[in-house]
Every structure is written in structure tokens, then in C-alpha cells.
Design a protein around this nucleic acid. Structure first.
Lengths: 300, 300
DNA sequence: TCGGGTCTTCGGAAATTGTGATGGTGCGTG
DNA sequence: CACGCACCATCACAATTTCCGAAGACCCGA
């Protein structure tokens, strides 16, 4: 038994006439006849009395008709519901963070997503550039914020802004910092970041340029831990410019450092995934960037 | 969209694997793949994520799955319900009567039908041989009791018993009835039956045999009307033997009359109709007769 | 790098379904 | 009463769909 049997059943019951039912279903009268015959055979009952005036439901047919209608309704409900879900994003998206929410403009991103995909659950998961990248690769994250150059052909990278770096120093060390010569600074204690963090590369570049190596004190792989270490007086460290503004426990040293790019990454093979596209659309709106599709159009 | 699409959808969702789903549905794996693909296309959504480990429902698929199940359940409910109705008689049967219920053993017939076809509505419609026959012919009745020989090849006739006839006379005429010679009786007033009643034929035969014609007074085409006319003293009449037993307003004359057969008739072309068969089965049980199928077997 | 598992795609075979013509039947009408 | 008409059933054949087995692509774990 298939749905077309039931559709024919209902049509014939309503039209009481094979020919009209056939017209209504855009097919031929023998086809309709065969449907009814087949249905009667599989059900093991007689649905219609054949009269010279047409088809009249038997009591059994009368009793089965509402059930057939119900089945058809249930089937079309699947279709109906699917149409409703057609362009709606549901499920969840996991986005990896690598620094504080305000700088990443997360509230705006969240607001945009909530408006355009109200049933989409958004998970913002704090991490770092070093943990986010592999997480995106293996699918633990759908996308992530990272800093520094990404050289991975399987990743799509979206540049958001340049992130100026500074050397942060604890207020408690202010007296020991006589000069801002790098060689002098290297003799003070430093708080390291983990090697896969872009700050680490910046630090290495700084000291290599001056042929010296800083005193390694402690490794922090989360930015907030790094910031806290510096404020607590553990040592110097490289942080994003501005984090110590209006902070009386730490301050920025006037040393020129290269900036690192803040970027948003996701797996390149998912660039046409509606979920990714929706996130990118909102993200680009928040950051005032042309969306990837527009970029692709420009490139072509 | 057809039911097999939904069946496949559910099977794949449960097995999470095309190959196993194919085995469960006794078909090949490419067929299953095509079903899912077609369903996704008509629904306009992606139901599964294809992974190297198998098929995993997307959130959309997850949401549509229960609806698909519902549709399948509704469809199988049609089948289920039909199976239940398979051998059950429902609707109504209309049986024409031509004389009183006790003589026709209707309570036993009704009891038998009620037991074996509880959902069958039985209508016992009083009439007469003359009205019952055409009613059966045009389908106003499904079957009927009639008396007298039936010569109609389109009818199946089932003999029930011989019905002895007598001449009934009102007590008020007792003194005027000197002899029971037919010629004498013919001079008295008579209550006629309608010409299509078997009693009419009996009456004609009686008087023709004695070369006389009775005085026609009134025509009654319902047996109970006839009986009442006689009891009221309107005239003599031919009735079934026994109706005036223990009646002080009328009595039977000791005149030999031929008996007429009581029969049960229905359209021959409906002899294999389950409704007719059920009625005949019960009727034959009530009257201690071999059912028509048994008769056919004996004849062959 | 290989073997085993997955899903997809492909061409051709098989089954199903649909078509148009034809036949049988009952009904109403001239 | 015969004819035409409307109806459904059936038939042979065509069109479509569905199905199958093989081969391809991909990923994972060994």
C-alpha cells in the first residue's frame, strides 16, 4: 500500500466517479480503477459498490475513509513541516573564543543570530588560538576566533582587524623598569604564553631582533590567566593593547610591537553549509566586512 | 512522496546505516540511498549528515522523524482496521416480511444475526408477497419472505415450509353459513386479497373448481388487515391455518384448501454476497434447512 | 599504505505504473 | 423497445519508475 492508493481512494470516495477522480488526479480512468482494485486487494475488503451511476462507498469503505484521510494528512504534515524548516536554522553552533567577549563583539553577533535564527542554539566556548584551531579541524567547533597568520589550506580564514600588541608590566615592577630597552627588559621576569599562541611568536620576534632571551617564569595559555599573572606582579607579558587601560595594577610599556591579525576561521569544505553562511553573514555585519560570497564575487 | 520514502527514512534513522537499513527492508543499498536522496529533494531539507561511519540525523531530520513515524502509523492503522473489518459484516440488511413475526421465527433469526454479526443493523420491514418481490428486484430489500411459487430466474428461492390455508369466517356470520359447500359460500360476502398475493390464487382456484365466483367486498393487501376485516364480520377470507385458533370473533371452516409454500427470496446475482450468505446461514439454521452452499454441493 | 567500512554514482535490467482502445452493463430517452 | 449514454473493467502495449550490481570516492584505523 502506498500513498497514491489512499489519495485515489479519497478522491473516488469524494467524486463517486472514477472518471472525475481521474481528472482530478491528472491521470487516466483505468489507472484509478487499478488503484482501487489493488487497494481493495491488499486491505482484503470491498471499498466501493460499483453501480451504473458510479462508485458508492460500502459501509466498510465508509468506515475506512476517515482513517485514510488521516494517513494522508499525517503524510502531508511531514511535507508541511519540512517546508517550514526549509530555510530555518535549527540545532546548535559552537564558536571558539580566544579573548574577551567585548573585544570580539559577541553581544552583537549573538543578537544578530538570535534575530535571524531564533531556534539556533549558540555556544560560545572560551579557549585560545592554540586550542581552537584543532577543535575546528576535528569538528568540535564549527568556527573560531584566532589571532596570527593561519597557514592551513583546509581552513577558510576571515580577517577581522589588526590587534595591536603591547608589553604589559605590573605596577609593582615599575621602579625596576629603568629603561624600555628590550635588552634591559629581557632581564626581568616574563610570563610566557604557550608556543601555539600568536603572542608567543611576537615575543620571540621581539627578542630575536635584539639578540637576547627573556627570563621564563610561567606559561599561561589563557589570556585572562596571563593578564592576571601580570597584574599580580609575576612578570612582564605581551598582551593586546588596551587591556590595562584604567588599571592601577598594571600598565603598558611604550615599546613598539608588531600587531597580529584577529581572524575568524572555519573548515573550507563547510563554506557552503547554511549554518556557516549564516554565522559569517552576521559576523561580517557586526565587523563591517563584506561577506565571503561578496569577496568571492569580487575576486572573480 | 510515497510511503516507501518514509519507511526508508525511519529505517535509516534507526539503523544509522544504509546497508543495514537495506537489509531490514529487503532491498539494495543504492535503492535506500536513492530513497533518502529523493525524500530530501522533495522536502527541500537535509535529513542526514553523511559520515564515514554512517548516516547521522541532522537536527531537521530529528525534528521530522516523529512526524514520519506518525504518518506510517496512520497508514498502517488503515491496514489494521481493514483487517479487523475483513470478515465482519457491517452496514444494514433489509428483510421484507409478509406475515406475522412469530410464524416467520424472526426472533430466532434476529438472535442468530445479532450474535454472528453484532455490528449489522437488521431492518425487518412488514409488507406482503406482492410488495416484497419488486422491492427485492430493485434493491429496496435485500431479501424477503414470500408465499407461493416464484417464477423469476433472477431470484434465488429458498423453500421454508408449506403453509396450510383455510377459509376464515367471522363468528357473526356463523348462522348464515349453513353448509360448507363452496357454491353456497360463494354467495356470502368475501374479503379479497390483492391479485399478487398467493392467497388470491388459492381463492381463484377454489372457486373455479366449483364454477362460481364469490361476492367481492373489499380488498386487503396486508394480512393483518385481512384478518381484522374477517373478525369484524365484513366477510369470509382465506388465511393461514391457525390464525383464528382461540379466537372468539372468527373461526376456520372445514374446507380442504391447497397449501402454499413459504419461501425466502433474494437476487440470484447476490448469492455470493457475504451479507446474503450470512443471512441465509442464520435462516437455514433457524428453519433446520441445509444452507444454499450445501444444497449446491449436493446438486453437483 | 593498505584494508575495510561508509555513501554515491552509473548504466542497464526489471518491475511497476500508466495509456488508449475496447467490452460489458444498466439507465434514461426518444 | 431500441438506441445512445455514462459508467466501470479489462487488455495489450508503452512509458516511467524503480531496482540492481559494479565501480568510484572518501575516511578511518591498523
Amino acid at each position: 500500500m502506498e500513498l497514491y492508493h489512499l489519495r485515489t481512494f479519497v478522491a473516488v470516495a469524494e467524486e463517486k466517479n472514477l472518471t472525475r477522480a481521474a481528472e482530478r488526479l491528472f491521470t487516466s480512468q483505468p489507472a484509478i480503477s487499478a488503484h482501487i482494485k489493488a487497494l481493495e486487494e491488499t486491505l482484503g475488503v470491498t471499498l466501493f459498490d460499483r453501480t451504473p451511476k458510479g462508485m458508492r462507498l460500502t459501509p466498510v469503505g465508509e468506515e475506512l475513509l476517515p482513517r485514510a484521510r488521516q494517513a494522508l494528512t499525517a503524510a502531508s504534515a511531514v511535507l508541511q513541516h519540512a517546508k517550514g524548516l526549509q530555510d530555518e536554522l535549527i540545532g546548535s553552533v559552537r564558536i571558539g573564543l580566544n579573548t574577551d567577549a567585548r573585544f570580539l563583539r559577541l553581544t552583537a553577533l549573538q543578537a544578530g543570530l538570535a534575530e535571524h535564527a531564533p531556534r539556533l542554539e549558540v555556544a560560545m566556548l572560551t579557549g585560545s588560538t592554540g586550542t581552537n584551531l584543532p577543535a575546528v579541524r576535528v569538528g568540535k567547533l564549527d568556527a573560531a576566533f584566532v589571532t596570527g597568520e593561519i597557514d592551513d589550506p583546509s581552513m577558510s580564514v576571515c580577517f577581522l582587524c589588526d590587534e595591536p600588541l603591547v608589553i604589559g608590566a605590573p605596577a609593582s615592577l615599575r621602579e625596576q623598569i629603568a629603561s624600555t630597552e628590550v635588552a634591559d627588559l629581557a632581564r626581568l621576569p616574563w610570563v610566557y604564553t604557550s608556543p601555539d599562541c600568536s603572542h608567543f611568536a611576537a615575543m620571540r620576534a621581539l627578542f630575536e631582533a635584539h639578540c637576547c632571551e627573556p627570563t621564563r617564569t610561567l606559561i599561561a595559555n589563557q589570556e585572562d590567566a596571563l593578564v592576571e599573572m601580570i597584574r599580580a606582579g609575576v612578570g612582564l607579558g605581551i598582551v593586546r593593547a588596551g587591556v590595562f587601560a584604567a588599571d592601577d595594577q598594571a600598565y603598558e610599556l611604550p615599546v613598539a610591537l608588531p600587531s597580529v591579525p584577529l581572524q575568524f576561521v572555519y573548515l573550507r569544505k563547510r563554506e557552503n553549509d547554511p549554518l556557516i553562511r549564516a554565522v559569517m553573514h552576521q559576523l561580517c555585519a557586526v565587523w563591517g566586512i563584506a561577506p565571503p560570497s561578496a569577496q568571492a564575487r569580487e575576486a572573480s
